[in-house]
Write a protein that binds this DNA or RNA. Structure first.
Lengths: 198, 198
DNA sequence: GTGCGACTGGGACGACCGTCCCACTTCGGT
DNA sequence: ACCGAAGTGGGACGGTCGTCCCAGTCGCAC
């Protein structure tokens, strides 16, 4: 095995862990499975990390920090706010369909963090990040549609995050595109009603 | 230990398993933990069930079948559809706050079922049940408000289920009552817009 | 080139997992 | 009263888990 500094091992192991969690679930993300995915030996694992818990915590922090704007609306001129939001949510749906395992992994990581008091802050941070991304999308959308959010945009963002979660879970269970699109449409409706035309 | 017929052991074990899953998560719901919760020995477990998997499957089927109308609107005369729906969602929120572990357990069971192809149908059945309950609530609400659903009520029900999931997840993470109420209000708004006055 | 610290491989440890076995006790039908 | 079936208890099995140890190897500074 090539000799790799511990810091690089850490990120390689985090990436491997994400792949394992996505493919097989967090319960199956054992030290041995992660190490096999990364092509290392167990010793390398515990040379880079003190414990599996430490890796999982870093995994959550990593995916949260990396989480990208999935719902960035693509701005077609002449669209009203409702249309912009709906197309943004539909784009998120396409993203979900393209890599359902990843979204399922994010959901599992949240639930995992929720299960122990000392990890709960990780879930909170995850949702704070989601909210930030949502704020950004909502500001872009309102700007493009010449609208103003009636409530603080942070509050609207909470609603968008909740709707996105609901959309995700429903689609993951039913894999019903039409139903998911209906959810997206209704959510866009609700959000658009939280703004005034300018 | 008292002698109990196997059929009664089965339901006692299922109840114990639900308590363990709620309190500590499905990963901690080991045969030994369940048996200790039920006050039995391991032998009784494997006398009543062939395997842990069999119990978990029955647990999911049981909680799904038992799932009650949580969002039944309480009908105050003179309310319009939006108000009825919002008060129903707020009642669900109170239910969630009263027993968050139970809803978290339901979410975990869904994700657990999603992780293996042969258990996926259990998750689908769970959401079909949710949809049935939602249909019922929506019909009551529309009737009381003298409104008509523009789309098939089953479609609206999907949206309600998704919104409820989002509400649940957001509150479980943030425990932010005000944010959850905002989600409920927005969801009620969106749903009400899916009906016409009659 | 030599030494030392960084890194690696493989095997082992104790704990816990799901499951099984078997001797034993209790109960209902006769 | 008794006998077979139903139910129980405790211990044991093999497997997997997270973690650890240690002898060995590599690469870099001197």
């Amino acid at each position: 095995m090539a000799r790799i500094p511990a810091s690089e091992r850490r990120s390689a192991l985090v990436e491997a862990a994400l792949r394992v969690v996505s493919r097989r679930g967090i319960a199956q993300a054992t030290t041995r499975a992660i190490v096999a995915e990364a092509g290392m030996s167990l010793a390398s694992f515990h040379y880079a990390f003190d414990s599996r818990d430490e890796l999982i915590d870093e995994l959550i922090a990593t995916v949260v920090a990396r989480e990208q704007q999935a719902v960035i609306p693509d701005l077609v001129p002449g669209q009203d706010l409702r249309q912009i939001l709906e197309s943004g949510l539909l784009r998120y749906l396409e993203h979900l369909k393209a890599d359902p395992d990843h979204e399922q992994a994010m959901l599992e990581l949240t639930q995992y963090a929720l299960r122990s008091p000392e990890r709960h802050p990780l879930a909170v941070a995850q949702y704070r990040r989601y909210a930030e991304l949502a704020v950004h999308s909502l500001e872009i959308a309102a700007e493009a549609a010449a609208a103003t959010w009636r409530a603080p945009v942070e509050e609207v963002a909470h609603v968008l995050v909740a709707f996105t979660d609901g959309l995700t879970l429903t689609w993951l269970v039913d894999r019903d595109d039409a139903a998911a699109r209906a959810v997206a449409r209704a959510a866009a409706d609700a959000l658009a009603r939280m703004a005034d035309d300018r």
